[in-house]
Each structure stands twice: as structure tokens, then as C-alpha cells.
Amino acid sequence: MTQQMINGAVLCAVYVLFSLGLTLSWGALDVLNLAHGALMMFSAFTAYVVTQHVDLPLGLLFVIGVGTAGVCTLLLDVIVFRHIRAKVTDKRQAELLTLIAGVGAAGIPVTLAVAYTHDSPFGIGHLDWSAYRLGDNAQISTIQIAIILLGAALCTALALWVSRSRTGRALRAVAYDGETAELMGVNTRALSAVTMLIAGSLAGLAGMLLVIYLGALTPGSGEPFMLKGFAIIILGSVGSVWGTAIGAVVLAATETAVISQTSGTWVDAISFAIILLVILLRPQGVVGKGLAERV
């Protein structure tokens, strides 16, 4: 039981990091980046490719992995999403085009990874972590502790950033009404760049932590994650940091319970079923308030 709670907490922390990036860009910029999952995988993949050629310390690998996802997301926004936002005035149409472009963009890192690894799992080593025993049949490793602490710390930091800082206020203003915010002197271009960079870096961090914790990812790991992130966001309402944390807790707890009760291969289907239920029953989310209140 204790062991399951630890596993659940680690899973939850990874989900939080991943989903926060997704919810930030969606809530503030109306960009639901469907390449978010693929870029999470791509951060670990880039680190893996680097380890194939040179031997770098783990810290540097993290910088490379996180940076790759951050920069790719930023480029995606600057080159593609911004272009769509500027060109298409109908909001619904822009939303769908962004979605389709995201699907297309996701295909690029996935194909690169498939071609390089021949569609097989890859890891970056660093599997030996010291573990501490907790009670009779539970243990926690330093990487697990690190993941849980990172998740909690970054979630808190982001919540404070959005609610307290000047940039955070500007972000909420943009989320509420982009045009007015721009008129009032908010530099929306710079703001959206920062937001996308943070969003992508969070995906990269989730990918790096995941590949070390699990030992390996596959080129296809991103897509189910993408959907889980989506489920978490709508569970907690779009754009809300604490809502995202709650959504992550619910999903991680459910999945951990399911894994302990069944063979584990069904676990994905169950999280997707949660998506169906949430969208059909409470499309406005459980917490109900996002970056900007949506009617």
C-alpha cells in the first residue's frame, strides 16, 4: 500500500509537469499543442542520441533534453501557430487548424525517433539510484524523491508566478482578452514566446524524468501521454494550475489503483475512458475557473 502511494505520487508529479505546460499554452494563448506529447518523448530521445556519441554528466543531459523540447515548442509557436493566429480570424477555425498543425508537427519527432531506433525502446542509463526502505515492503529511491519534490516545487512556483508576478498578471490579461491586453501595453509576442518556452521545457523535463525513472521510452510514448495530459487539464479546467494538480492526482491515483488490481495492460484504456466521461459530463472541468474565466 505504501509502495503504491509512492508510485502514485511519482506518476502524479510527472503528470503535473507534463500537463502544466499543456494547460499554460492552451489557457493563455488558445493553443492546444498536440505535439506536446511527441516533444516530451523527443527530449528523452535527443538525450539518448547524445549518450550514443559522447559521455556527458546527467545534469548536462537534462539541459540538452529540456532545452530541446523548450526550443522546439518555441519554434513551433513562432513559425506555425503564430502564423495561424494572425491569418485566421475565426476563432473556431483557428483552433482546428492549430490542432491539425499540431498533429502534423508531432509526426516529425516521432518519425525521426522511429527511424533512428527502428521503433524500439530507448533509455539513457543512470538507472542505479540508492533506495531507502520505508517499513516492511516499501522503498523509495532518490530519483523518486527528486521527481516528487520537483513536481510539487514547480507546480507551486508556476502557481505563484501566474498569480503574483507582473508577467503572470499580463498572462492572465492575455488569456482574458488578448486584444485589450495588447492595447494596454502587454507585449503579447514576447509573452507568448516565454509561455511556449516554459510549456515546452516542462514537457522536456517530464520526458527526461520519465526516461530515467522507467529506464526507457518508445517513440510512441508521447501520444497516450498527450491524451492523459488533456484528460488532466479538462478534469481541472483549462488554464488553472491548481486544477491541473488536482486532475493529475485523480488520474495518477486511479491508474495506480487499476495497476494494482489488474495485469496493467488495461491501464491506458481506463484513463481514456476517464477522458470520455469527463468531457461528456463536465466539460467545464472540476475546479471550474481557469486563467481567465470562460463562459
Binding site: 506555425v80 495561424i84 502534423g104 509526426g107 527511424a115
Partner: peptide, 17 residues
């Protein structure tokens, strides 16, 4: 060849844009 889905991805993005 094996990069065909990459090409599809790029084409899809370009067409949307």
C-alpha cells in the same frame, strides 16, 4: 522511404499554414 511520415507531417503543417 522510412521518413515518409515526417514528410507527411511537414506537408500537413505547410498546407494548414
Amino acid at each position: 522511404g522510412e521518413y515518409q511520415h515526417l514528410v507527411y507531417g511537414v506537408v500537413l503543417v505547410l498546407v494548414v499554414m
